[in-house]
Design a protein around this nucleic acid. Structure first.
Lengths: 152, 152
DNA sequence: GGTGAAAACACTCTCAG
DNA sequence: CTGAGAGTGTTTTCACC
């Protein structure tokens, strides 16, 4: 799919506020409501806009502590890899998990309440998984930037 | 703020689909439209729901290549730290940047089109920043899990 | 806490041009 | 792409449990 300048602006606005009405957007884009409506539908139907979500402030729900954890597996047999990934899917503390190249096999983003909570998560969940050789945790001191928006 | 089971379910539903109508939600929660409406307003006004956004599929907009980059600074004087963080804010390829403890000072999530694009980003943007001692890039082979939802 | 109803308003979606 | 219309959902208030 290709985008013109209007599509790019539209995606920018919707990534910043997914609940704007087509009417509001039509003013910002100097277009008719119908034209905006059809552009949005095109972006939704083509899958460029995958979904609309509410974002929750982690600070207000006792989940302010963010940790990036690097994991190395003991072996890289398909069976082990598949099992590890299946188990990670079920850990709700893990919001992201990427299989990466380099010194570690996986990098996980984990959000919990505090250090004590993280200790419990490590001891009773993460390190009980099979085939983990080592982990290395990086504790977040501050969030310099944290956005879901992709500039097109 | 405290949540009961209904609030937790409501947050779960809205984190999965932020555009559901209060009517739909009232069915799922076995509540009246008014009751759901008031609970949502409470969550929005208290800041638990920080915003609603459209999520874009990176694969459909030529930004499929995801890199986690570890950065070490030469010095940790307040002035240097502040300048680095200010500069990172302006790099649109960087969607996340966390100041972390451990071997590195920062971990960045960078999304670009491909390896060539990443090379350009490194050479002409990231490594031109002041006070960077070293960088270490982890290329994403696969996204095992990548969600904005926080299980409450 | 919750319900149901009413009224005013705004938006979504389709269609003819 | 535009403008208009029908249908639907939102938002608020109200009396009430």
């Amino acid at each position: 799919m290709s985008f013109d300048e209007t599509d790019r602006k539209l995606l920018k606005f919707l990534q910043q506020d997914g609940k704007q009405t087509t009417k509001e957007l039509s003013h910002k884009l100097n277009l008719s409501v119908t034209a905006v409506y059809e552009r949005i539908k095109k972006l939704e139907n083509s899958g460029v806009i995958s979904k609309y979500v509410a974002l929750v402030d982690r600070g207000k729900i006792e989940r302010k502590f963010l940790v990036l954890c690097h994991v190395k597996l003991t072996q890289h047999k398909k069976e082990f890899v598949m099992q590890f990934e299946r188990e990670i899917m079920d850990l709700h503390e893990v919001s992201e998990c990427f299989h990466v190249s380099g010194d570690y096999d996986y990098i996980l983003k984990i959000c919990v309440k505090d250090m004590e909570d993280y200790r419990n998560f490590m001891l009773s969940k993460l390190t009980t998984l099979q085939h983990i050789a080592s982990t290395h945790s990086s504790f977040t001191i501050s969030e310099v930037k944290n956005t879901t928006e992709i500039v097109i």
